[in-house]
Structures are given as C-alpha cells and as structure tokens.
Design a protein around this nucleic acid. Structure first.
Lengths: 389, 389
DNA sequence: GCCGTTTAGTTTCGTGACGAAAAAATAGAG
DNA sequence: CTCTATTTTTTCGTCACGAAACTAAACGGC
C-alpha cells in the first residue's frame, strides 16, 4: 500500500486537470468533471482509471446499508469521485527570523500536526538540520510523508534557491538542495506570500474566484494578485514591494521602509517603533491594540494613521484590480478589529459611492497558516506537477 | 485569387498559434517558429503548408539575382515565412459622439486609407447606414475587404452588442448585426479602450511585453491592463472606471465624474470646464495647453493639478501592476508636453527612489488610431479566430 | 416481479495531431 | 566534386480524444 502509493506515476496534463478539479471542487462524478473540463464521457473513464488505481482518487463509498436520499432523478446514480486526502502527507515550514513553524497536512490541506521551535541561528546548514529533525519527528506519526514545502520571506528562484532574504540574511542559498540531501524527500522552496496566496486560492478564501487579492500585514507587507484563477508572478515577488509602496509621502518615517510607505505605516515593527518612541517604553503589538481600543490618544493616533493607510491601500487595490475579494491576512490584521470603522471610512472616501462594495475578508492567521501555505505549494508541485513559477 | 483568398479555412489552434507568431514577430523560419512554440520541425512543415496554400503566409522571396549576405553558417539556408499583409484588408471604425473615423488596414495593421465624417445623429440605424457608405466607398479601392471592426466608448457584450454608451446614448444596440446586414461582411464591435490596448499589445508599444498598461486621456479616462501578454478582461470594461477612480477626495468638482476622480481631474471636457469657468470664455484644449505653457496662472493651476493627478495615477499603476511599460495615449496627452516635469516629480514622490524607473511612453494619438485599434480586433477575431472576450 | 425508461459510465473504433528519425534539399569549405 | 552542416520534408508509429454503441444501475408502471 505504501509502496503502491509511493509509485504515483507522473500525471499527464489531462490527468492533472482532473486531479486538480476534484481536489479543489470536492467530490465530483465523472460526468460532472467531463462537463467542467469540456471532455467526453469516454475520456473521463480513461483518465480516472489510473488515478483510482494509483490511490489518488476513490469512488465515494456510501454507508453500506442505505444510500443518501436520491436527488430525485431516476437512472443510474452517479458515482462521485473524491481525493484520498490521507494517501499522502506533506510537511510545510515557515521560517522567520526568530523561529521555525512546521505543520503536516493531508492532500486536502488539512493540518493534522504542528510544531514550533525558536531559532538560535540564521545559518542555512543549521536551519536545514533543524528542519530535518522536524521531518524525522513528523515521520514517526506520518510515515507516508511525500514532500516538503518551505516558505521564507524573501526572493526565491526556481522553487529552490533563496536569492535573498532580509530577515535571514541569506544570499543565494540553495536551501531545497540542503534539505533534500538530509531528508531524502523532494523539497519546494517559495516566497511565503506566494505560498500563502496559492493556498488561499486553492483551498481558502479565494477558492473558485477569478480575481482575488491577498494582502498580508506582519513584519512586512505582502501582496498577492490572482487573475483568472492564477497567481500573477512578477519580478517583485519577495522584493519588498511594501517598502516602496508609498501611501502618504508625508507619512511617518520608521527604520523599515520608505517614509510613508505601506511598511512604515502598517507593519508590526513600524507600529511598535512609533508607539514605543512616543510612550518611551517597550510594548508588544497586542498591547498596542488594547491601548488604542481603550482610548489612549498617543497609540490611537498611530493606529488611526495605520488604519487610514490600510484603507487607501485597499481602495487602490480595489480600483486597479477589481478583485472579487480581498483577503487581509497575517499577524497584523488585529488592526481591523480595533480600527475597522476608520478603515471603512477611508476606503469609502477613495471610492465612488456607486462602485461595487469591496468584499473584504479578514483572516486572523498565525505562522502555522504560513507553514500550511508552503505545504500547499509542495502538493501543487510534487503531486500535481504544477510547474509554472 | 480573390476567390481563393476568400475561402480561408478556419484555423486550428496550432495553426492559429503559428499565424500569430509570424504576425507579431515578423518573418520567421519554420525552425525558429518550432522553437518558439515548442513543436517539432515536422509539425511545422505540416502546419505551415495549408497556411501558405491559403495565401496567409509566403516564403520570403529574395531578390532573384543575389541573396542577402548569409548569416555566416553553412548548411541549407533557412526559409523565413512572412504574413502576406495585403492578402486581406480590414475596415476599422471609431464612433464618437460627434463623428465617425474610419480606416482601412492591412493584415499587419498598416493603415492604407482613412476618412472622417461628422455625425449629425446618434440613431443606430442611421449610423449603420453611414458606416455602410464608408465601407462601400472603401471597397472600391480595396475589394478584398474581409471584415469590419467597430470601437465605441461604452460597454459591449459578446463582441457584438453595445450594452450602454454614454456618448451615444445607446442601450442594448445589436450594432454588429445592423452593420452585417448592410455590408454582408463580418463585424466585430468592442469597447474602444479594449481595442486600442489589443492593438498596442500586438502591433504597437506593448509588442512582446509580458506586462503592459495603456492609459488613455480624452473625453474620458481609459485603462487597459495586459498581463502575460493577454488583456485582462473585467466587468468594468467600458463602465466608466475613470469616473469612479478617486485620485484626490478634495479635488475639483466637474460635471463629469466624481469629485477628484481621474475624469474630473484629467479628461479634456473637465479641464475645459474648469478653465472656462475661471476665464469666463470658451477655449479649446490646445488653446488651454498653449496658455498654460505661456505662463498663464489660472490655466496653469488647472493644468498643474491635472499633471499631479496624472502623476499619482501613473505611480499607483506602477506600484500595483509593475508593468514593463505604461503607454499614455489619447487626445489629451498633450498635457505631458506642457507639464511633463510636474508629472515626473509627482511620480517620484509616490515611488521609492530605488524602485525601477517607469518606462512611460507617450503616444500622440488621434481618433484614427482608435479606428485602427478596432481594425486590429477584427483581424484577431475574423482571421485568427481569437475567441476570448 | 417484470419491463420499459432514464441516466451514468464503459468499450470500441476511427481520426488526427504530434514527435522521432530517416531522407532530401541546399548551401559553403576544402 | 565531395564532404559537412543545416534546414526542411517525409514517413511512420503512438497516443489522446470524441462518437457511438453498449452495459450498468437505478426508478416507476403494470
């Protein structure tokens, strides 16, 4: 069984399309898949056979005794196919400057285990050792680990090499190779925002949407644009777009980012920097939000400015990309709870009153969600052979 | 010959890809096309044969006596193929509220004739009659007219029906049908900005670029975004995006567009409205630009505000879409000549100093360029069977 | 309970697009 | 004139696909 599952043949383009369709849109009968992919019924018999034999798909089994209420029609009942979520497990990691976050997910991207460890070093070899230890650990519970995805803040080339990463101080580190040598498993390395956006597009808030934007607020500002269901790749991925994204030329100046940039206004370190400079003492981000919510004027001013900046950013994105949905994610979205009204008011001021309202979703995400995003990348690349990017 | 050329079989997807490759990237040998499209040499022999027989392509003939200097190599010389530009002619029209602009182009989108006529009515039937007269006229000089493209400001459905057009006061007019009935030629109707953007992507400033933006300034503001070499279509096409595009919530209020919107700041009617209100007399757009250039303070203030608005707009587009090039087109680009410095300064203020400089191209375009864009759409749809959109 | 009806899925067969490889064409070099 | 290099053509085998006939599995009417 494990040996059989291990020998998944590389999928043909048509098989891949079938697998993705089932993975993204739940159980589907052959006929339904045929309609969606514009193929003949005969082709679907042909395409699904090897996928079922290899264990990637199963015919959905009804409870032996009674079937679910028929949908009314007569005729032979359709036979929905579904992904065997547990046929393979994937490890996903998010590496920050301070810690490593690891998760194990099924093929359907459900997290079944997670673990965190602080990082005492930025040395690639040592971090690879640490991740290897994670993987060995995970392997005990999930022997059928099929691949590893790694997300880092920074620019990644060829899904394998970290070209540069400010948080880690890396420069052209072939991290996929380092980790593959240790674990013997295939490794996919990608920019963290790219990974999170892909994950949300396939399994999260952006599922099935044609146009979709992910905006992350955390140590930096991340931006992922999906058009036609596909992530738009650009040279700017992981290049600190947010540092250059000037929202207000007269805005605050902070150590990170240009004056008035998205990073300077919105990122957690910049907000802490501003508040701490004003208060004259150390305070963490949740503390700042609590202070602002309780009416503290100094903190409130900083948060208010951040909220206005976010409103402008969202309005600009909405104006240019016209996404069906904008997802705010990252560790800094608590801002929305505290200053949601200011954000909405600012958005309204920069949009036509008759323009379509923006579907703005906020997802309180932690670093494990980033790790899950990396695991989704591994699923895409390793199981389905998705190659672009 | 004419009969043969008239019977171009519909192209298969692979043939279409070959035709488009040759059309867009000049004369190419079979081997070169094979490399670009990732096909085998044998396939190229197969695919090019019917295209040559149908007269769409030719083997480039060298001057009989002497060949051009060989590229150095030995071996059988390659045989470049080229589009027969004159094998078919296309008519393109731009309909404004005041006039109809018509051109005739070759397959390579070279304009070989053009004509203008003022419009005394907005009645669809009468305008169709007028266009029919144009076509009859053009047909005398270019009997091999193969199709007609029509560009209108407004929202167009299915490349055939004008859903609404503010300038013409049309509402669900099946204009393609009206014109096809009269001329007997296939007609493609499309939003004018879409047509211009496609034309510039295929044959103009955006040729071969992956990311490209067209921003038009005229009676309104138009925005065309090309990603991955393909125009991004959205529900907003022709829906007056510029009216809602708020640049400065405290900006001027004019009859068109929302206060401080792109249209209110930049469009020709809005600029004229502002200047005329201030001067208390009628003045045309070139006159305004001349006044501003000569240092008139009243006009200068309006133009300055427009220039700053344009700078912000360009900076936002650059930040968000990261295009390799932004093309400013339309009848209102004269603004750039007069206030180029202000525009550049404003762009710089809203961009990081280290961000890649923006490749900003200005094209002084008149209505005939819009008409040419419509002809390009007809080429895409009618000859090459491009169906999306 | 048997039989038509209906819908889902399978099998068979023919077509067509493609690549691999051999062959032909066409040039320059010696 | 022959050899070699390069492009193009031809030939042939493979494979993916759709059409259509066929089988499977349900329901309802009698």
């Amino acid at each position: 069984m494990s040996a059989l599952a291990a020998s998944w043949a590389p999928l043909s383009p048509a098989e891949r399309a079938v697998a993705i369709e089932v993975l993204m849109h739940g159980p589907l009968s052959r006929g339904e898949i045929a309609k969606r992919l514009d193929l003949s019924a005969g082709s679907l018999t042909r395409l699904t056979k090897p996928l079922i034999e290899s264990g990637l798909l199963v015919e959905e089994a009804w409870p032996n005794a009674s079937r679910p209420a028929r949908t009314g029609g007569q005729g032979r009942p359709s036979q929905p196919l579904d992904i065997v979520a547990e046929s393979r497990y994937f490890a996903g990691f998010k590496i920050t400057g301070d810690a490593v976050y690891g998760v194990v997910t099924t093929l359907k991207s459900e997290v079944v285990a997670q673990r965190t460890r602080p990082l005492g070093t930025h040395d690639p070899e040592e971090i690879a050792d640490l991740l290897d230890a994670f993987v060995q650990d995970f392997s005990r519970d999930f022997p059928r680990l099929a691949g590893i995805g790694v997300g880092v803040g920074g620019h990644v080339r060829g899904r394998s090499t970290v070209v540069d990463s400010a948080f880690l101080d890396w420069d052209d580190v072939p991290f996929a190779e380092l980790l593959e040598r240790r674990t013997g498993l295939p490794v996919v390395v990608e920019n963290d925002v790219v990974a999170l956006t892909e994950a949300e597009t396939w399994f999260g808030a952006g599922r099935g949407l044609d146009r979709f934007v992910v905006l992350t607020i955390g140590a930096g500002i991340g931006y992922g644009l999906v058009i036609g269901g596909t992530l738009v790749r650009g040279a700017e991925d992981g290049h600190g777009l947010g540092k250059r994204w000037i929202i207000d030329p007269n805005g605050p100046l902070t150590p990170d980012g240009e004056r008035g940039s998205a990073v300077a206004l919105l990122s957690i370190p910049s907000i802490r920097y501003q508040v701490q400079a004003a208060l004259g003492r150390e305070i963490d981000y949740p503390g700042i939000l609590a202070l602002a919510a309780s009416g503290d004027p100094v903190t409130g001013r900083v948060i208010d400015e951040a909220a206005r900046g976010l409103g402008i950013l969202v309005a600009q994105i909405a104006n240019f990309a016209m996404p069906q949905k904008i997802l705010l994610a990252g560790e800094g979205v608590g801002l929305v709870d505290v200053a949601g009204e200011t954000i909405q008011r600012t958005i309204a001021a920069h949009r036509h009153p008759l323009a379509d309202p923006i579907d703005l979703e906020t997802k309180v995400s932690d670093f494990n969600d980033w790790a899950r995003g990396a695991a989704v990348l591994a699923i895409q690349v390793l199981v389905l052979g998705k190659t672009d990017g």
